[in-house]
């Protein structure tokens, strides 16, 4: 008899609890679900998904000059090779200072090699980076060996511009143009914040993988 009372009391309390919890959850679902999902999606826009161990390689469509699965920002996706100045540096997507520490940065607002537009690359003017860029002459070859194809460019011209001279870095899609730049003056006898840039312009010769 006592057992019955105890079990009955427990069962009633648990049943009431689940009943009220269900009402609460239903009310939240009816009146708050949209808002909760909305705010959660806003918060999740600042969430960077954990990097998959298997990275998906980019795929290049020659006919349409399109790339499927762009490299992630901050990722190495190739090498810059300039035989004339004995240079081979890793090429990264992005050009933040922390990326430039490791090699050549690709300005994320420009096109990727092979897309038929302006590709803008930057590197420090230190030894081992772009310090020998001024040695390039018209006709010299610059190779971009990416993980979706190799692209060769022929140097056309160079100039020294102010860092704020955005017109010297035109983003266009009529012709595939490579712009490489570094801080100027390059020599270390001039110190401080470098307000000029040494810029080299080159044009696509052909895709070596074709």
């Amino acid at each position: 008899m006592n057992k019955k009372i105890i079990i009955k009391t427990f069962a009633t309390n648990v049943a009431i609890s689940f009943f009220f919890a269900a009402i609460f959850i239903l009310l939240i679902y009816i009146f708050g679900n949209t808002k909760i999902n909305y705010y959660a999606s806003i918060i999740n826009t600042v969430a960077v998904s954990a990097i998959n161990e298997k990275e998906i390689e980019p795929v290049y469509k020659v006919e349409t000059k399109r790339i499927i699965n762009y490299p992630d920002y901050g990722k190495k996706y190739g090498n810059v090779v300039i035989s004339k100045i004995n240079l081979k540096l890793p090429l990264y997507h992005g050009d933040s200072l922390s990326i430039l520490r490791y090699g050549v940065g690709h300005y994320a607002g420009s096109y990727f090699p092979g897309e038929g537009g302006t590709v803008i690359l930057a590197a420090h003017n230190d030894v081992g980076y772009f310090h020998r860029l001024p040695e390039l002459e018209k006709g010299d070859i610059v190779k971009l060996e990416t993980n979706y194809g190799t692209f060769e460019y022929k140097v056309d011209s160079h100039k020294i511009v102010k860092e704020t001279d955005l017109a010297s870095f035109p983003i266009q899609k009529e012709k595939e143009m490579l712009i490489m730049y570094t801080c100027y003056p390059i020599n270390r006898s001039v110190v401080g914040r470098k307000t000029e840039r040494y810029v080299v312009y080159a044009y696509l010769v052909g895709d070596s993988d074709e």
Partner: peptide, 13 residues
Amino acid sequence: KENMEDYIRSSGF
């Protein structure tokens, strides 16, 4: 320290 070193890299200092 790293950010400052990155910044001064092209400065000549």
